[in-house]
Simulated assay, not measured.
Amino acid sequence: MKNEILKESSREVKTFAELMHGADSMLEKASNGIEGSYYCLISSLILCAFSFEAYMNHLGIKHYSLWKKEDRLSVLGKYVHLCEHLKIANPDFGCGDCQILKSLFKYRDMMAHGETHVLELAKPVKRSPDDMSYILKSEWENFTTLPTVKKCLTSVQAIINKMNYAAGLGEYAFGSGIEVSDVEYEMINKASNSGAAGRADS
């Protein structure tokens, strides 16, 4: 007779929370000025955008069944739909957190559908020819700065927490999923193959 452990468990995987933790982690690394911090800023912005999109699905599909997984709705369209459902004021994408959110998703789209551009500059330069301040940058490169990343994470987290509270799910949305387990011990009758073999040879 042997003891066998049977474990039954469940754990809610909050993808949006894990993505936002990643965005925070990348921002912290960039703030510390580590080598490659510029790419940490890019990663933080993209993870933040992905987190918001995942949260829209967390509420819209899991909790309210407002659309199906295969439905092709824009992320900001889902946001507007959820605000209506939760009786939150319609988003004003011309100011505040919503304006930053809109800029973030413009950045996300530029990175997801990246193109190669030739940038040109034609204006008088009064400084020395080797002055690096005149290096041309694309729109997404100008967006990738430490202050901008901080603003994006602060605004997106505020929007998500506000929606989470309105949905009755608590003031803080980014807690990790908790695993719930049930462990049972059972006595399993297992014959000893070696003993059986020994008796056959005698």
Results as ranks from 00 to 15, higher is better:
74 S>W: 06
74 S>Y: 14
74 S>H: 14
74 S>N: 12
75 V>C: 14
75 V>F: 09
76 L>A: 09
76 L>Q: 11
76 L>F: 10
77 G>E: 12
77 G>I: 05
77 G>C: 10
78 K>T: 03
78 K>H: 10
78 K>E: 08
78 K>Q: 13
78 K>Y: 08
78 K>R: 15
80 V>D: 09
81 H>W: 06
82 L>H: 10
82 L>V: 06
83 C>P: 04
83 C>Y: 02
83 C>T: 09
84 E>K: 15
85 H>C: 04
86 L>H: 06
86 L>N: 06
86 L>A: 06
87 K>M: 12
87 K>G: 11
88 I>M: 11
88 I>R: 06
88 I>C: 05
89 A>M: 05
89 A>T: 08
89 A>P: 04
89 A>K: 13
89 A>G: 05
91 P>S: 11
92 D>R: 11
93 F>W: 04
94 G>D: 13
94 G>Q: 04
95 C>Q: 13
95 C>W: 03
95 C>P: 01
95 C>N: 09
96 G>C: 04
96 G>L: 03
96 G>T: 02
97 D>K: 05
97 D>F: 00
98 C>E: 10
99 Q>V: 01
100 I>Q: 01
100 I>F: 03
101 L>H: 02
102 K>E: 15
103 S>T: 09
104 L>H: 01
104 L>K: 00
104 L>F: 07
105 F>A: 03
105 F>H: 05
105 F>V: 01
106 K>P: 02
106 K>H: 11
107 Y>E: 01
107 Y>K: 01
108 R>S: 07
108 R>D: 06
109 D>W: 08
110 M>P: 00
110 M>V: 04
110 M>E: 05
111 M>G: 00
111 M>Y: 08
111 M>T: 10
112 A>P: 11
113 H>R: 15
113 H>V: 14
113 H>M: 15
113 H>A: 14
114 G>H: 14
114 G>F: 13
114 G>W: 11
114 G>K: 12
116 T>V: 14
117 H>Q: 15
119 L>P: 00
119 L>Y: 06
119 L>S: 07
120 E>R: 03
120 E>W: 13
120 E>T: 11
120 E>K: 03
120 E>G: 06
121 L>W: 12
121 L>K: 12
122 A>Q: 10
122 A>Y: 08
122 A>S: 14
122 A>I: 12
123 K>P: 00
123 K>C: 04
124 P>L: 10
124 P>A: 12
124 P>V: 09
125 V>S: 10
125 V>E: 06
126 K>E: 02
126 K>A: 01
127 R>D: 13
127 R>T: 12
127 R>W: 05
127 R>S: 14
128 S>K: 13
128 S>A: 15
128 S>V: 14
129 P>Y: 04
129 P>W: 05
129 P>Q: 08
129 P>A: 08
130 D>A: 05
130 D>M: 06
130 D>Q: 09
131 D>T: 00
132 M>G: 02
132 M>V: 09
132 M>R: 08
132 M>H: 08
132 M>W: 05
132 M>D: 14
133 S>E: 09
133 S>W: 04
134 Y>C: 03
135 I>N: 01
136 L>D: 01
138 S>N: 10
139 E>D: 13
